[in-house]
Each structure stands twice: as structure tokens, then as C-alpha cells.
């Protein structure tokens, strides 16, 4: 089963986030990018499928700072092909990204396309569905575990209230991954370093990055701090007296 995995880079929340002068985007001067956690699960799921059913795994990621490391890590886990989407990838929206990705994926002709169901920098989860639409494939999102069958896969979905569903999906298909069947594995640094010497990353121009009708952020800001609660301490009588006083002040009583 050949699988293409789409990986995005998102701001690392370990660093403090600042908003730039425009007031509509993050200040990139201190920004550090990290692999989107759910995309990391998508990579893991792809490797798990490769281990159980064979096939080739291709990992595609936009050319942003740190992308090589992410791709080599995927190779160390077992990915076969690494593709870097080159172009003005900083701040590209999901609409444009999906268009570029669809063109590449059409050439790869995978049985399955995996991507994280959403990313922390957009929270709209649109890459998967849009890819499915462009490629004419089925889409299932919020998947937490995939098992291969003949020309289909069985995916696991966890619903609220502790219900679990198994969905059979005919291939080819796009899956939005929420969690891999197993937590992403650790790859020792030596293997990643080895890959950085032996594995090859293919540069693929993203082509025309048309933002289309995708949503645009107008205003970005940090939530205003609400007023803190006041704890009233003391004996029950004192607390009651104090409460009555407060209620009176507030005209509640």
C-alpha cells in the first residue's frame, strides 16, 4: 500500500508568541517551527501501515526552517521518499497549499493520503477535505488508528461518550489523522544523522500559490485577562458576613 503523508510546520508553542506590527499575524523574528503534532501521528500511522502491509511511504512538507530535520526523521522511521515543497511557503494558506499538494500527489498515485486532521496554526482542518475534493477521493477525518484490508482500510473513530466506530474506507482515500494506532516512536539521533547523510530530499516547486478564497486573518490578539476570583477565608460566620456585604455592594440583595 503506497501512502503519501502531508506534513505541515507550525509555530513551536515553547517560544513566547508575539504579534507583528500588522496586528494580523505572528511576529516571525522569534518564531520557531515544529512539526504539527497530528501530522507526526500521520507519519507514524503511515509507517505502521507500511510495516504491516508493505508499500512505499512518501512524506511531503513545505520548505520552511527545520523541514530537513523533519523529513530525515521520517526517513529514519522508515519513510521511503522525501519531498520538499519549495516556493514562498511562509504564511501560505491551506487553500494554496492543498492545490500544490494535489498536483504532486496525482503524480505519486498513492493508495492512501494521510495528514493530521488539523494544525494548531489554522484550526480549520481543511487540508484533508480539500485534497480529497481535488483528488476525487473519499475523506474520513478524526481517525485514530488504521488497519489495512484488501482494497480498503478499516479506520477507527472515537466519538464523545466513549463510543468507538470502525469505518471501512475504499481506496484511494484521504484520512485526517487524530492519533496513530501507536504513539509516535522515538528515533535515535544517530539514525537521523545517518539519514541526513544518505537519504535524498527531492525539491519540488510548489508552483502557483493561489490563496484563492481562503479565509484571511483580519486581527490577531491575545485574550484579555479576566478579573481574578477572590477567595474569602475565615470562619463560616465571617465568610457569610463578608458575602452579604459583597452582595449588598453589588445590589444583588
Amino acid at each position: 500500500m503506497d501512502i503519501a503523508v502531508v506534513v505541515k510546520l507550525v509555530p513551536d508553542l515553547v517560544e513566547e508568541l508575539a504579534i507583528d506590527e500588522s496586528g494580523a499575524a505572528l511576529d516571525t523574528s522569534y518564531l520557531r517551527l515544529i512539526v504539527n503534532e497530528l501530522d507526526n501521528h500521520a507519519v507514524e500511522q503511515a509507517i505502521l501501515l507500511k510495516e504491516s502491509a508493505g508499500g512505499q511511504v512518501t512524506v511531503i512538507a513545505p520548505d520552511l526552517e527545520g523541514v530537513d530535520d523533519i523529513l530525515f526523521t521520517a526517513a529514519a522511521k522508515g519513510a521511503d521518499r522525501l519531498i520538499k515543497l519549495t516556493g514562498a511557503m511562509s504564511g501560505v494558506n491551506n487553500y494554496a497549499l492543498s492545490n500544490s499538494l494535489a498536483a504532486i500527489i496525482r503524480e505519486i498515485k498513492p493508495h492512501l493520503v494521510l495528514t493530521g486532521v488539523q494544525a494548531n496554526n489554522d484550526l480549520d482542518g481543511s487540508v484533508g477535505p480539500r485534497l480529497a475534493a481535488l483528488l476525487g477521493m473519499a475523506y474520513v477525518g478524526y481517525v485514530s488508528g488504521v488497519t489495512p484490508a484488501n482494497d480498503s482500510v478499516k479506520v477507527r473513530k472515537e466519538y464523545s461518550g466513549g463510543l468507538v466506530a470502525q469505518v471501512a474506507v475504499r481506496l484511494p482515500a484521504v484520512l485526517g489523522i487524530q492519533a496513530a494506532g501507536k504513539p509516535p516512536r522515538y528515533v535515535p539521533i544517530s539514525k537521523i544523522r545517518q539519514m541526513s547523510k544518505t537519504a535524498r530530499i527531492k525539491d519540488q516547486p510548489a508552483g502557483d500559490l493561489d490563496a484563492g478564497n481562503g479565509a484571511a486573518v483580519k486581527h490577531m490578539f491575545k485574550p484579555e485577562m479576566g478579573t481574578h476570583a477572590t477567595m474569602i477565608e475565615g470562619e463560616a460566620d465571617e465568610v457569610a458576613d463578608r458575602l452579604i456585604a459583597i452582595f449588598k455592594e453589588q445590589d444583588i440583595l
Binding site: P183, R185, Y186, V187, P188, I189, S190, K191
Partner: peptide
């Protein structure tokens, strides 16, 4: 470690250290 066989906490710590 080479086989990636370790507990979740250690894996997380190593990832952070890396």
C-alpha cells in the same frame, strides 16, 4: 534506544533534550 523501545516519559524527555 536504537529500537525505540522505551517508556513514554523517557521518549518525551529525549525528544525535548534533542
Amino acid at each position: 534506544v536504537n529500537e525505540g523501545q522505551m517508556g513514554g516519559m523517557l521518549q518525551e524527555a529525549l525528544a525535548k533534550l534533542g
